[in-house]
Design a protein around this nucleic acid. Structure first.
Lengths: 332, 332
DNA sequence: CTGAAAGCGCTAACAG
DNA sequence: CTGTTAGCGCTTTCAG
């Protein structure tokens, strides 16, 4: 900036004014400065500027998700990025692998870099450590999973409603023998979907044999094994509710291997690429990832702007997409 | 930091030493400082520190890709993140939507934030604007697509080899009537895959009717339409080479709609979730996205470390995964 | 082993 | 309309 000022033969503050499009610069001076900027290919140092700038804003958001390459969370990431871009804010996206230690490390890295706000899909069992930082004015918005012991904003999917809708859908097609495959029960989403499933099962007085609820599935291989075991029972289920996209993939593989994919009904949670091209096409409960990301980012900015009045928890609706696999009738 | 120093009753520089694990601090002083840090929940301001720190490193990388929620590029992102994490470097990931203007905007935002290095999947027709910045010492590594008129490192897939292998595979299964569906020809990858396809077609003296090469497909809907048109010809192809994951999705839909999916062979470029569960399962040319991301990140750091001797272009091999759709014999 | 002074590149507050 | 001075939070340099 000093070099630009020297070349344009003005004070350093005038350069600052031109760069920040402040008022009180004559047109002729402004063009002279702009010429110098172009000649020197000067890019202002945003970091240095923000150090002194009012509010100490860094124009940076931190986004913590289980995996940047998980389609659901990548879609959230994209939505956050789009909202941030309208305010010229950049986004740090990091993968926690659902590991609490890694999460702590990453959040600390965001804080060291003075991110203006954080959007977190957390796995930590508590969030007391964030309270002080929150009181200092850093907005925290929790997505997909609520904070445990911290009063903070959150944006969640309607996990309970979606799971209940999936279960009701299977029941309405005659099924009375429905198994449920779930992710790690330490995850809020897994517990909520379990609750939705059970509530509907109980409401309709559907019997639930021991072992029909399988929990703590972490990947498609485990889901494949669990589905295989279910199908090989003497009392196999006639329908499956798969409460996670990766679980659906594993279950489909097990069904196809036994040539049962046209007999055993299936509803998955979360939409998947090519789901419509399978035979039968997959019936799913779709989550609105874009909406979640959008709401979370808007929430961060409204807290930053002081527009947000009080803490909110938003629940984003899910949508049942019938495509075939969930409409297979009960044949036994 | 001043508050910590006051509480621990030491000089500010001593706090700095403890924070940065520098030598020359007595154990007793160190613990006193550490206690104060914990009490105040002090997080050092990395931005302020980097302003003066030698080398002016910000510990930040900028990653520009077409879309953070595209599975191929999201996998690259994840790999870059993992390499960066080992050096405590954070990653800005931004989506260009393959829009040159948006790309320019994003690159400039990275530069203003003084990213230590940039990894770019570019769509710009020229890169002269980056030359000065490169000479100033900022490492640029191009992924997926090489820079046009800038001497810089790049990490690419073996597009030509993969496309040739796909084509040879179809030919070896008896096909003599093969259509090729391609992405925007402004993209390096599309042109290379076209070249691979054509080279193999010519090498084997396979006839190529007019219209068998469809270019500039941007999404699955366009691919669906283009495939439909091909299949409705009086001389329809017996095999398809789909040079992009989204194109494969659209083509599969068109085939299934006509109930031709078990007759017309198909090889796709890029692997897809559920590809193995389709009927027939999809034969694809898989790219090694993780490897691309890993190599690119390592390259950035080796330039930063001064370890890299001279500019390199790495070509990451592709791999043909036969699953069924590419092995359908020619029946006409 | 410890701390005071200077300064990274920029903006805030004020004076001309 | 323009420039000067101080200082953001930290690291460097150098003197105790």
């Amino acid at each position: 900036m000093r070099d630009v000022a020297a070349l344009a033969e003005v004070g350093i503050k005038t350069v600052s004014r031109v760069v920040n499009r402040e008022a009180n610069v004559s047109a002729s001076t402004a063009t002279r400065v702009q010429l110098a900027i172009n000649a020197l290919r000067y890019e202002p140092n945003l970091l240095a500027g923000n150090l002194r700038r009012s509010g100490q804003r860094t124009q940076v958001l931190g986004l913590l998700i289980p995996n940047v390459s998980n389609p659901f969370f990548a879609a959230i990431h994209r939505a956050v990025e789009d909202i941030a871009l309208t305010r010229r804010v950049a986004v740090f996206a990091s993968s926690s692998d659902d590991d609490p230690r890694r999460e702590t490390e990453i959040v600390s890295a965001f804080l060291r870099r003075r991110a203006d706000g954080l959007i977190l899909a957390t796995v930590r069992p508590n969030h007391q450590n964030l309270q002080l930082e929150q009181e200092r004015g850093t907005p925290f918005v929790f997505i997909d999973r609520p904070p445990i012991d911290l009063a903070a904003d959150s944006v969640l999917s309607d996990n309970h409603g979606g799971a209940a809708a999936a279960t009701a859908h299977l029941i309405s097609h005659g099924h009375r023998s429905i198994a449920c495959l779930l992710a790690r029960s330490s995850l809020f989403t897994a517990r909520e979907r379990r609750r939705g499933f059970l509530d509907e099962i109980n409401r309709c007085s559907i019997p639930l044999p021991a072992g029909y609820i399988v929990e703590d599935l972490t990947n498609d291989a485990e889901a494949y094994a669990a589905t295989s075991a279910l199908l090989d029972r003497t009392d196999p289920p006639t329908a499956l509710f798969c409460a996670l996209n990766l679980i659906t993939v594993g279950a489909v593989r097990a069904l196809r291997e036994r040539n049962l994919h046209r007999q055993v009904a299936l509803v998955g949670f979360d939409d998947i690429v090519l789901a419509a091209e399978l035979d039968p096409a997959l019936t799913v409960i779709a989550q609105d990832a874009s909406r979640i990301g959008q709401l979370a980012a808007e929430r961060v900015f409204s807290i930053l702007d002081g527009t947000s009045t009080r803490r909110q928890t938003s629940v984003v609706p899910t949508r049942l997409i019938p495509r075939g696999s969930g409409e297979l009738p009960c044949i036994s």
